[in-house]
Design a protein around this nucleic acid. Structure first.
Length: 902
RNA sequence: GCCCGCUUGGCUCAGUGGUAGAGCACUCGCUUCACACGCGAGGGGUCAAUGGUUCGAAUCCAUUAGCGGGCACCA
C-alpha cells in the first residue's frame, strides 16, 4: 500500500463532507433509536452579507465538536443552520450595487428594490454556507432557515400582534437615535460611543432684566448649533451662584426667544458653568428635562442633519457643522462668546456607517421591556438559567444589563426587513394584524395603508430558537428540540441577542430557549487588538485552512475556547504537525497490517495481555473519560490537551515503539497478526476520540483501516448505508479497563529508559553504540518487571543495550560506570570502560543530589514546624514524610554511587 | 465616573490552597527500517508589586501599577 509520508489535508477535505451530507449523516433522523436523548443547537445566524471570519470559525468549531461528540454518543442531534437577513447591512450592500449602475433604491421603488435584494440573496448571499461546509460543520442543511422566510415571517407577525394586544408594543413620539446617513432610527445598542477631541464653547445668554450684578448667564456646550432650539437654561437648586436667578427670563441670542431659567437636579454644579442650556428636541438628557418641566420642543435640525426653518432664515438649510461655525461666529460678533476650551467627550456614532448620530424626536414603534425583563430576571434568580459559561463575568453582565433595560425601539426606516404588521385607516386608526386580510376584517374597510417601516433585525433573531422549529405551530421539531441544549456565541451580542431570545422564549413558549450559554473568547491579532475590517488586521480562516488544513485550524480554535487569545500561527503549525503525526502512526500501522483487522487482537483474557497492551488500553480509557468530562464542562482546551498527549506521548512515543518488534516481525504468525490487530484497534479507537475535533483526517484514515464496516457503527446508526467514523460510538472510559498496576509498571519502565537515555546523552555516546545495562532493585516486583524476557528485550531495544542484567543491588558493578537512581528507588548502571570521566561523573551525580537536597530542605522545614503536624491533614503530613524518606534513600544511593567512582 | 477581567519561562496560553505545566522558540546529539511537519537528551520562571489570612499562597483577601473590556444623559 502506497501512503505518502506527509499528510495532505486537501483531498480529504474535498471528499468527505459531501459524502456525509449526501448520506444524511447530519440529520437527527439518522438516529433510529426512539429512546435516544436529545441534543440541539441553533446556530447564531450569520449575516447574509457576511463571509467567514475567525469568530465564526471559532464558534462553528466549538458547536461542531459538541454536535459530533453527542452524535457519536448516541444522542439524536440537531444542529440547525441558517442566516440572518441583516436589515441595514444588506440594504447597504444592494444599494451600493445599484449605485454602480447609477441608480438609487428610490429609482426602483420599494417593491422592485426588495425583489432585487432577494435576487442578490439567492445569487451571492450566503457564501458563508459554502464556507461552513469547508469547516466541516455538521449542520442539518435540510432544516436551514432564513430570518425572512415564510415560516419565520409568520412567527414575527404572531409575536408582534400578541405583544401589541397586550400593550407591550406601542407607537409614539420619542427622542430617538437617528442616523442621517442611513436615514433610519437605531436602538441604543446599535449606537457606539467613541471618544472625540472637541471644543467646549462658553456662550453668554443675556438676562431680559438684570438681577443684581448679573447681566447674563454663561452656559457651556459642545454643540453650539443646538442653542437655536433652546427652550430653557437649567441650574441646580443647591447652587448658590444661581439661586436668585431661578425663574428669571433670558433672551436667547440670534432668535430673540425668551426662555426661562429653571432648576433641575440633573444639573451638576461642578461641570462647566453649572448652567445648562436645554434643547429638548435634540438631546436625550434635555428631552427628559423638557418632559419634567413641560418645556416646548423646538426642532432646529432635520433628518438629514441640516438646520430646519425653525432655526431661522440665516441658518435654514445649513449642515449642522456649518451652522455650528456660524453660531460661534455670530456669538463672537455679538461679544457673547466667553471662551472656547479643548475638551474630550464621547460622541455617538452609527455602529454600521460611523456617522454621528443626531438625536431627533420621531414617531416610532417601541417595545416595553419591563415585564419581559422580569421574566428573564426571575428565571435567573430562581433557576439560575440560562447557565453562562464562563459564569464570571457573563452572568452578572447579563443581569445588570437587564436591570437597567429601557424600551426597545423596534421600527427602522428601511425597505429590507419584516414590514411592520400595522395598517392605518384613512382617519388615522391603527390596525395591527397578522395579515392584510385580517387587518381589513378588523378595520371593516379595504382602504388601508401598511406602515412603511420594517422591524429591527434583532426582532426576528430574538425568535430564532423557536421560530426555526416551526412555531407558532406545535410541530414535532418544536416539541423535540426546544429548549435547545446550548447557545454558543460571541460576547458582543449577549444584550443584542441572547437576552432578547430568553425574554421572547419565556414569553411565548414559557421555557428558556437554551440551558447553557457558552461565550467564546475573542480572537485578537498579534498585538492584542480586535480583528476588524477597518483595521485590516483580520486573519482569513480560509487562508489558514489552505495553509495548514481545516483539522489543524479547528484544534487551534478549540483550544481557544472562552479565552481571548492573540492569534499565533505557530500554534496552528504545531497542530498541523500533530495531524501529520496521526497520519504517520496510521501509515506505520497500515504498512504492517497484513493479516490483521480492527476489532481483533484482544480476544484473550486480559491477564494474558502484554504489559504495554494493558497499559495503552488503560491510558485510552482514561483519556476517553477525561475528554468526556472536559466537554461536559465546555473545557475544550483540556480535551484537546488530553487527546494530543495521549496520541503523541502514549500511543506514538511508547506504545508503537513497544509493539514494534512484534508488529514488524519478518515471519507471519498468529502473534504477529494479533499484535497488528491490537495496534489497529487502538488506533481506530483513538481516531474516534479525535473525530469531533478533527473530522477530516480521522475519516480519511478510518476508511482505510482493514476491518472497518457497518458493524462498527453505533447501534443507533446501524441502519446507515455507508459506514463512517462519524456514526461510530464515541469511546467511553470504562473503569474496568483502567489498570493502575500496569500504569505503575509502565511508568517504571519509562523512567528507566529515560534515565539510561539521559546517561547516553550526557556521556555523548553515539546512537549507534550499544551498552550494557545493570539494574539494581531491592523491590522484587521491580526485579520481576525489568527482568522478564519480554521487558528486557523491549528495554534493550529502546536504550540500545546489548545485555541487561537485573539484580538486587549495584554491588560489584565496575568503577567505570555511569549510574542513576530511579524514581522507583531502583538503580541503574552503565559500565563504560574508558569512556567515563570520573570527575565529571561525580559532578553529575552531585548536581542531582543537590536538587534532591534542596527539596528535602523544604520538606524538613515544613515538618519542623510543629503547627504543620498539628493543623495540616494527617494524609498531607504522611505524604511529606514519605517523600522525605524517599529522597533520603535516593540521596544515600547517590552518595554510594559517588563513592564507587572514587 | 462606575463595574468587570487579565498580568505565570523569549512568544502564545493552561493551572487556581499543598513538589511550577504545555506548544512554539532555544541548546546538544541523531538520515534509529511511521513521521526532520521527525527522534532522543537538556537549559530556562522568586507565577506584576506590596501587605494580609493560613501550618502552608502563583492559587484566598486588600491596596498599587500596567493592559483590556463593559456600562454611564455630565451639557
Amino acid at each position: 500500500m502506497e501512503i505518502p509520508k506527509t499528510y495532505d489535508p486537501r483531498e480529504a477535505e474535498q471528499r468527505h463532507y459531501s459524502h456525509w451530507e449526501e448520506q444524511g449523516c447530519f440529520a437527527p433522523e439518522t438516529n433510529r433509536d426512539p429512546q435516544a436523548p436529545i441534543y440541539s443547537i441553533v446556530i447564531p445566524p450569520p449575516n447574509v452579507t457576511g463571509s467567514l471570519h475567525m469568530g465564526h470559525a471559532l464558534q462553528h468549531t466549538l458547536m461542531d465538536v459538541l454536535s459530533r461528540h453527542k452524535r457519536m454518543a448516541g444522542y439524536r442531534v440537531l444542529w440547525l443552520p441558517g442566516m440572518d437577513h441583516a436589515g441595514i447591512s444588506t440594504q447597504l450592500v444592494v444599494s451600493r450595487e445599484l449605485k454602480k449602475e447609477g441608480l438609487t433604491r428610490h429609482d426602483l421603488g420599494r417593491e422592485k428594490f426588495v425583489e432585487r435584494v432577494w435576487q442578490w440573496k439567492h445569487e451571492s448571499g450566503g457564501q458563508i454556507t459554502t464556507q461552513m461546509r469547508r469547516e466541516g460543520a455538521s449542520v442539518d442543511w435540510s432544516r436551514e432557515r432564513f430570518t425572512m422566510d415564510e415560516g419565520l415571517t409568520r412567527a414575527v407577525r404572531e409575536v408582534f400582534v400578541r405583544l401589541y394586544e397586550e400593550g407591550l408594543i406601542y407607537r409614539g413620539a420619542r427622542l430617538v437615535n437617528w442616523c442621517p446617513n442611513d436615514q433610519t432610527v437605531l436602538s441604543d445598542l446599535e449606537v457606539e460611543k467613541t471618544p472625540q477631541a472637541g471644543k467646549l464653547y462658553f456662550l453668554q445668554y443675556p438676562l431680559k432684566e438684570p438681577r443684581g450684578e448679573a447681566r447674563h448667564l454663561t452656559v457651556a456646550t459642545t454643540r453650539p448649533e443646538t442653542m437655536l432650539g433652546d427652550t430653557a437654561v437649567a441650574v441646580n437648586l443647591e447652587d448658590e451662584r444661581y439661586r436668585e436667578l431661578i425663574g428669571a427670563t433670558l433672551l436667547l441670542p440670534l432668535t430673540g426667544r425668551e426662555i426661562p431659567i429653571i432648576a433641575d437636579e440633573a444639573v451638576d454644579p461642578a461641570f462647566g458653568t453649572g448652567a445648562v442650556k436645554v434643547t429638548p428636541a435634540h438631546d436625550p438628557a434635555d428631552y427628559e428635562m423638557g418632559v419634567r418641566h413641560d418645556l416646548p420642543q423646538v426642532v432646529v435640525i432635520d433628518q438629514h442633519a441640516r438646520m430646519t426653518e425653525g432655526a431661522g432664515p440665516e441658518f435654514f438649510g445649513l449642515d449642522r457643522y456649518k451652522a455650528r461655525s456660524l453660531v460661534v461666529e455670530k456669538f463672537e460678533g455679538l461679544g457673547l462668546l466667553e471662551k472656547v476650551v479643548d475638551y474630550e467627550f464621547s460622541i455617538s456614532k452609527c455602529e454600521r456607517c460611523k456617522t454621528v448620530i443626531e438625536p431627533l424626536i420621531s414617531t416610532q414603534w417601541f417595545c416595553r421591556m419591563d415585564k419581559l425583563r422580569d421574566l428573564a430576571l426571575s428565571l435567573m434568580s430562581e433557576e439560575r438559567k440560562p447557565r453562562f459559561v464562563p459564569e464570571v463575568p457573563y452572568e452578572k453582565t447579563y443581569t445588570n444589563w437587564l436591570e437597567n433595560l429601557r424600551d426597545w425601539t423596534l421600527s427602522r426606516q428601511l425597505w429590507w426587513g419584516h414590514q411592520i404588521p400595522a395598517w392605518y385607516t384613512g382617519d388615522g386608526q391603527i390596525i395591527v394584524a397578522r395579515s392584510e386580510e385580517e387587518a381589513r376584517a378588523k378595520a371593516g374597510t379595504d382602504d388601508l395603508t401598511q406602515d412603511p417601516d420594517v422591524l429591527d433585525t434583532w426582532f426576528s433573531s430574538a425568535l430564532w430558537p423557536f421560530s426555526t422549529l416551526g412555531w407558532p405551530d406545535e410541530t414535532e421539531d418544536l416539541k423535540t428540540f426546544y429548549p435547545t441544549s446550548v447557545l454558543v456565541t460571541a460576547r458582543d451580542i449577549i444584550f443584542l441577542w441572547v437576552s432578547r431570545m430568553v425574554m421572547m422564549g419565556l414569553k411565548f413558549i414559557a421555557e428558556t430557549p437554551f440551558h447553557d450559554v457558552f461565550v467564546t473568547g475573542t480572537v485578537l491579532d498579534k498585538h492584542g487588538q480586535r480583528m476588524s475590517k477597518t483595521k485590516m488586521n483580520g486573519v482569513d480562516p480560509l487562508e489558514v485552512f489552505d495553509k495548514y488544513g481545516v483539522d489543524a485550524t479547528r484544534l487551534t480554535l478549540a483550544s481557544i475556547g472562552s479565552t481571548d487569545t492573540r492569534w499565533n500561527e505557530n500554534q496552528v503549525e504545531s497542530f498541523r504537525n500533530f495531524a501529520n503525526k496521526i497520519w504517520n502512526a496510521a501509515r506505520f500501522s497500515l504498512m504492517n497490517s497484513e493479516g490483521a483487522s480492527v476489532g481483533r487482537g484482544f480476544e484473550a483474557d486480559r491477564s494474558q495481555w502484554a504489559l504495554h497492551d494493558r497499559w495503552i488500553i488503560s491510558r485510552l480509557n482514561k483519556a476517553a473519560e477525561s475528554v468526556d468530562r472536559s466537554l461536559a464542562e465546555y473545557d475544550f482546551y483540556a480535551a484537546v490537551q488530553t487527546l494530543y498527549h495521549f496520541f503523541w506521548d502514549d500511543l506514538c512515543d511508547w506504545y508503537i515503539e513497544l509493539t514494534k518488534a512484534d508488529v514488524t516481525a519478518q515471519e507471519a504468525s498468529p502473534e504477529r497478526e494479533a499484535a497488528r490487530s491490537r495496534l489497529l484497534s487502538v488506533l481506530e479507537q483513538s481516531l474516534r476520540l479525535l473525530h469531533p475535533f478533527m473530522p477530516y483526517i480521522t475519516e480519511e484514515l478510518w476508511q482505510r483501516l482493514p476491518g472497518v464496516g457497518p458493524h462498527l457503527l453505533h447501534e443507533a446508526y446501524s441502519q446507515a448505508t455507508e459506514p463512517t467514523i462519524m456514526l461510530t460510538a464515541y469511546p467511553r472510559g470504562q473503569a474496568r479497563l483502567i489498570d493502575e498496576r500496569a500504569e505503575w509498571e509502565m511508568q517504571a519502565i519509562i523512567d528507566l529508559v529515560s534515565r539510561v537515555r539521559n546517561i547516553r546523552s550526557e556521556i555523548n555516546l553515539k546512537p549507534s553504540e550499544s551498552i550494557n545495562l545493570i539494574v539494581g532493585a531491592q523491590d522484587a516486583r521491580l526485579r520481576e518487571l525489568f527482568g522478564s524476557a519480554k521487558s528486557t528485550a523491549q528495554i534493550a531495544r529502546l536504550v540500545r543495550a546489548e545485555k541487561i542484567s537485573v539484580r538486587e543491588s549495584l554491588e560489584g558493578v565496575p568503577r567505570a560506570a555511569a549510574r542513576a537512581v530511579l524514581a522507583s528507588g531502583a538503580e541503574a548502571a552503565v559500565p563504560l570502560e574508558g569512556l567515563i570521566d570520573f570527575a565529571q561523573e561525580r559532578e553529575r551525580l552531585g548536581r542531582e543530589r543537590e536538587k534532591l537536597q534542596k527539596e528535602a530542605g523544604k520538606l524538613e522545614a515544613q515538618l519542623a514546624n510543629p503547627q504543620f503536624a498539628e493543623r495540616a491533614p494527617v494524609e498531607k503530613v504522611r505524604e511529606v514524610r514519605e517523600r522525605l524518606n524517599d529522597i533520603a534513600q535516593r540521596t544515600t544511593a547517590l552518595q554510594q554511587m559517588t563513592e564507587a567512582l572514587k
